[in-house]
């Protein structure tokens, strides 16, 4: 495997959990901004605010991704490859970043459950 591919893969694995957090954060921010500027923030699905439902779905998706990364890093291929290469550090960082990323995703998304949506404070 060439130098840059192997490094790109390593870097992606180590930062995957944090990248998922960043993607979730950006997606929620952009979605809320667009709904508040041009959408219908008052709309509902099955009696629940559409915005809250969508944000929660994004959050579940992000948590699912974190779970997958965690599994890969602790028990899956990532761990095996890291051990074969004599670099368990890489799998450790990947797992820890996914765990931290999962907590950060939850922490960022929780206020969605009760904060007023589009009104400036």
């Amino acid at each position: 495997m060439s130098a840059e591919r192997s490094f790109a893969l390593t870097a992606l694995r180590m930062g995957a959990g944090l990248l998922v957090w960043a993607a979730h954060f950006a997606a929620v921010y952009v979605y809320v901004a667009l709904v508040c500027a041009h959408g219908n923030p008052g709309s509902e699905v099955l009696g629940f605010s559409t915005v809250r439902v969508v944000v929660m779905l994004m959050t579940l998706l992000a948590l699912g991704a974190q779970w997958h990364i965690l599994h890969q890093a602790l028990r899956g291929r990532w761990r095996k490859e890291a051990q074969q290469d004599g670099q368990p550090f890489i799998a450790w960082i990947a797992a820890a970043a996914a765990a931290a990323g999962a907590v950060a995703v939850l922490w960022s998304a929780l206020p969605t459950l009760w904060i007023t949506l589009c009104v400036p404070p």
Binding site: V32, P111, T112
Partner: peptide
């Protein structure tokens, strides 16, 4: 600056994290 409250809450969460 008048940004929607939900957006502010996201940034508060990240700022504390």
């Amino acid at each position: 600056t008048g940004i929607p409250q939900l957006s502010l809450s996201l940034f508060t969460a990240a700022s504390m994290a």
